[in-house]
Nucleic acid binder design. Structure first.
Length: 960
DNA sequence: GCGCTATATGTTTTT
DNA sequence: CATATAGCGC
């Protein structure tokens, strides 16, 4: 398998055994199942390099598909580093959507697609559907209709076909009828406007590749990142792209499947195994990212899902600090606590950690408000990724709409939006009537206007003389003029993209328009426009630099050469969603990252905060799939390398003063978390330094820089807000900002029905304090998974570090970790395949496994399941998808089952019995070696790493 | 057609 | 509680 050639060597040397096997596998189809932090991207990029450099495939015959633009960018960059000579630019690399767009713009006319199709973005389809529903007076919820249509498209022709032959729907629900009508109208509208929506890009590309397989005749191999997120169409597309050679490599992790709502089907994994027998399966299990405590706890969360593949996460790093679960009073207190904790952590680390090492991950973008406010107030720089999009700002959308109409006059929606911007005396009503008139006479709005203004055909709609003049004199003339300058290369040089935009801005006197319409913040908006221009300039530059993304010539099939910048720019805007603000070169100061959890997938940070971990946020009240919400939390937690903080506000920030309930995903695990941030003494900081392989700052450096009045502990905010509130009444000035917070509380609004409090406590707080303190001290060694009932730990170890020997210890550890991964042979990987065969031989058809769970479990066991699906899985999957299809009709979302352990566990206010007795150690005794193992702790809990020779036992899951 | 005020409404995730 | 929409007066 491993050849001695230097080329091979250089690729393989940075890989562990399993990774190397994956990279160099000779199998046509390779499935890599990779847990978080297992070097997934590195493996995939290495395989690309391997295929090109060692297997000799031409870069232009390789397709790499990712799900996000960011992943595509990163992949390209990393491949570029390994492949010499800029060959990465020749690889067909991008998101599924952008790859589909490339094929469609090159060959689309063979399936009757206009040369100049545009892309309907989210806002477009929403608006179109909303209009249709209103016009036809459909009694359906437009967003639901949109989701339904999208699902229908995303399911893929194959699945749709199967579904229709299997069962006659026979349920002509009134709603269904309307949905169908809406679907048809919507599609008609798109066709008329020459638009494809996101799903259409995939659907039409599938159609193209079915009818004209020669488009991809050159393709040797196809690689898919984040495979667990593929939906039905994407699966078909993948197969079709690879149809010539059938060589496919996929990388994925079912536990990180968080796009079910976008019709991602985990079932595609089985489909792949069914359709490509002989697939080589490889699991990547070593986790190079996170501390052991973080991994252990993340596993506890994900294992609440009883019907997932069981997969291992083998920690490579040290135990680290125990993750924190913090209770705050309100969302704003939560935000301020986060800021104070960031400050404390960074200061206590010396200069080892900075803002760039911190991420705040949110379930929904809307939650960022408080956090942004608090960060801003404290003067901490931050960047928000995901959520609001630059291109969605009204001033930018206006310019984009102008550009779109220049490119595609028949785009009625875009034209309608700019007709009266700047004000030309055409009201919404008039525009609506005009559109309807245009649709009735099957004209585009554009041609209707042209005809009207030329006098060829007077519009029935009454337009004021003044408006008419403005339309014809300003709007039409301007647009026509620019279009001519852009397309006609005859005279002079045609307009470039930037020139076009600048010309538009001048002609519209856009700055003035902004001043008039937005007197308050026109400066900011104008700055955005400037930014937009520079983004356009960047785009043009990148395009020239990386050559255009033309596909290689295929004999006998005519390509449309598409070297217009404008359509490419517009497509890029629609498909890229967020403008990359980084602008490459000089990095300014490091910034805290605020991100949605979805957008954070694939990334990592030393310090991660996950606020708002309450029922209704995670799981989100509107979610239909509780398991997916749990996976979401898992993804968030596994982004953290060293420090992980979960938190939630006890009271809802929405006026009504309702109490929030801790998320059911963490409620049963409450006792596994620390109740406040760690004390950053040498051992704690030393472990962070080890994981990050950074230089540990000397003590003096740390203390020298501590500001006066700085609290070294996480004690500025009360551990228990209810308690604090009660105490605040009797003891007004407790000291610190925390107590000031107390006053701000919505309590005044509605006299809080007495919050349950413990009665006796004068010294209660003090006791709490001591316990917390002890926890901090022992956290480095005592907390183990195995102490929970029903769990066998995957293996843990402990370390003792002092400031003096930290460095030596670090190198030893590295060695040990290296030995560990080297000594372990890749476990037998065939389990999933075995299962599949057994299952297939008994059932023939994909859905409906006829095998009993017990039998399957016995077949599988053999003690070494790297991955094994629970036997019931396929059926459940199937059921679910059936249910989901009609989900928009059911008013009651399915609730996630409450984890069993929650019952009988802690109550709201009764502190749980701690997992292990709190040891009360004197401060400063940093050495963890002296700690005794508390009674009842299993041996595995503290086995030193180097004692573990054999592979870790798989985690057994009896009961939580 | 435009701009103001009162009301309701409603609160994921992304290509 | 904060934004989008609807309705009203100019």
């Amino acid at each position: 398998m491993v050849s001695a050639s230097p080329k091979h060597e250089s690729i393989l040397k940075s890989l562990n055994n399993a990774q190397a096997r994956a990279v160099s596998s000779d199998a046509a189809t390779v499935a890599i199942l990779a847990g978080p932090g297992s070097g997934k991207t590195h493996t995939l990029t290495s395989r690309v390099v391997w295929l090109v450099d060692c297997m000799g495939f031409r870069p232009e015959d390789v397709i790499v598909a990712t799900f996000t633009v960011r992943a595509a960018r990163e992949m390209k960059e990393r491949i570029g580093k390994a492949l010499k000579g800029g060959r990465e630019n020749k690889i067909v690399l991008g998101t599924f959507h952008s790859i589909a767009r490339r094929y469609l713009s090159a060959y689309g006319r063979h399936i009757g697609l206009s040369q100049k199709f545009g892309i309907a973005d989210d806002a477009d389809s929403r608006a179109i559907i909303a209009r249709i529903c209103k016009r036809l007076q459909l009694a359906i919820d437009p967003p639901a209709a949109r989701a339904w249509i999208s699902k229908k498209k995303a399911k893929g022709t194959e699945a749709a076909l199967a579904a229709s032959t299997r069962k006659q729907p026979a349920k002509p629900t009134a709603g269904l009828q309307e949905l169908e009508t809406c679907y048809k109208e919507y599609q008609d509208h798109l066709d008329r406007s020459n638009l494809l929506d996101y799903d259409d890009l995939l659907v039409r590309c599938v159609e193209l590749l079915r009818k004209f397989p020669s488009c991809v005749a050159n393709i040797q191999t196809v690689l898919i990142d984040e495979y667990q997120d593929t939906n039905g169409v994407q699966y078909e597309l993948m197969r079709l792209l690879a149809q010539k050679q059938g060589r496919i490599t996929i990388v994925g992790d079912p536990d990180q499947s968080i796009y079910g709502w976008r019709s991602a089907e985990i079932r595609n994994l089985w489909r792949l195994l069914r359709d490509f027998p002989g697939t080589d399966e490889i699991s990547l299990e070593e986790n190079y990212r996170s501390s052991q405590s973080i991994l252990d706890l993340s596993l506890l969360v994900i294992q609440q899902d009883k019907k997932r593949y069981q997969k291992l996460l083998k920690p490579v790093h040290n135990k680290g600090s125990r993750p924190v679960l913090r209770k705050l009073k309100s969302a704003s207190a939560e935000a301020e606590w986060i800021v104070s904790e960031i400050r404390r952590t960074l200061l206590m680390s010396g200069a080892m950690l900075n803002n760039g090492d911190v991420a705040i991950l949110l379930r929904s973008a809307a939650l960022s408000r408080h956090v942004e406010g608090a960060l801003g107030k404290a003067g901490v720089g931050y960047k928000m990724v995901g959520g609001f999009k630059f291109y969605d700002r009204t001033e930018i959308k206006t310019i984009l709409d102008y550009l779109r109409v220049i490119h595609q006059p028949e785009n009625n929606d875009a034209l309608a939006r700019i007709m009266n911007v700047p004000k030309r005396g055409i009201g919404d009503g008039t525009i609506k009537v005009l559109i309807e008139e245009a649709e009735k006479s099957s004209l585009s709005l554009w041609s209707l206007l042209i005809k009207h203004c030329r006098g060829d055909r007077a519009a029935k709609t009454r337009i004021t003389k003044q408006a008419e003049q403005k339309i014809s004199g300003e709007l039409l003339r301007l647009l026509n003029g620019v279009r001519k300058r852009v397309t006609e290369a005859s005279d002079n040089t045609p307009f470039g993209l930037v020139e076009t935009i600048e010309h538009l801005l001048t002609a519209l006197n856009f700055q003035k328009v902004l001043q008039d319409t937005h007197p308050d913040d026109h400066e900011q908006r104008w700055a955005n426009v400037q930014e937009f221009i520079s983004l356009a300039a960047d785009f043009v530059r990148d395009l020239q630099q990386s050559g255009n993304d033309a596909l290689p010539e295929i004999e006998g099939l005519q390509q449309t050469v598409d070297d217009d910048v404008l359509p490419r720019f517009l497509a890029n805007v629609a498909l890229a969603a967020d403008a990359q603000k980084g602008e490459g070169g000089q990095e300014s100061k490091p910034l805290v990252t605020i991100s949605t959890i979805h957008a954070a997938k694939g990334l990592e940070w030393p310090i991660v905060f996950v606020p708002a971990v309450y029922n209704g946020s995670i799981p989100h009240m509107r979610s239909e799939d509780g398991d997916e919400e749990r996976r979401l939390l898992y993804v968030a937690m596994t982004r953290a390398q060293c420090l992980l903080y979960l938190s939630y506000p006890v009271y809802s920030s929405m006026g009504n003063g309702e109490r929030n309930e801790l998320s059911p995903f963490v409620a049963p695990l409450g006792s596994c978390f620390a109740k406040k941030g760690p004390c950053f003494d040498r051992p704690v900081v030393g472990q962070i330094a080890q994981i990050l392989q950074r230089e540990l700052a000397p003590d003096e450096a740390v203390f020298k820089n501590l500001p006066p009045m700085f609290s070294m502990e996480d004690n500025v905010f009360p551990i228990d807000p209810d308690e604090a509130q009660k105490n605040a009444a009797s003891r007004p000035s407790g000291g610190g900002e925390g107590d000031q917070q107390t006053g701000e509380y919505p309590r005044s609004k509605r006299p809080r029905l007495s919050v349950p409090t413990l009665v006796s406590q004068n010294n209660g707080e003090e006791q709490e304090w001591r316990k917390e303190y002890a926890t901090t001290m022992e956290q480095a060694s005592n907390f183990t998974v195995s102490s929970l009932p029903g769990f066998v730990s995957a293996g843990t170890h402990q370390v003792a570090i002092t400031a003096a020997n930290a460095a030596a210890e670090a190198s030893q550890r590295k060695e040990r970790a290296a030995k560990l991964s080297a000594s372990r042979r890749p476990p037998d990987q065939k389990t999933l395949m075995d299962f599949h065969r057994t299952w297939q031989s008994r059932t023939q058809k994909l859905p409906k496994p006829a095998i009993s769970p017990e039998l399957a479990a016995r077949k599988l066991s053999a003690g070494r399941p790297t991955i094994h699906p629970t036997a019931a899985k396929p059926r459940i999957e199937e059921d679910k998808s059936e249910r989901k299809q009609y989900a928009c009709f059911s008013s009651s979302p399915t609730r996630p089952p409450a984890p069993e352990a929650a019952v009988g566990g802690e109550d709201q206010d009764g502190p749980p019995s701690p997992v292990q007795p709190a040891l009360n150690l004197p401060k400063g005794l940093g050495g963890a070696g002296g700690l005794r193992r508390p009674a009842g702790l299993s041996r595995e809990g503290i086995a030193p790493m180097d004692k573990l020779k054999k592979p870790f036992k798989p985690l057994t899951m009896k009961r939580l």
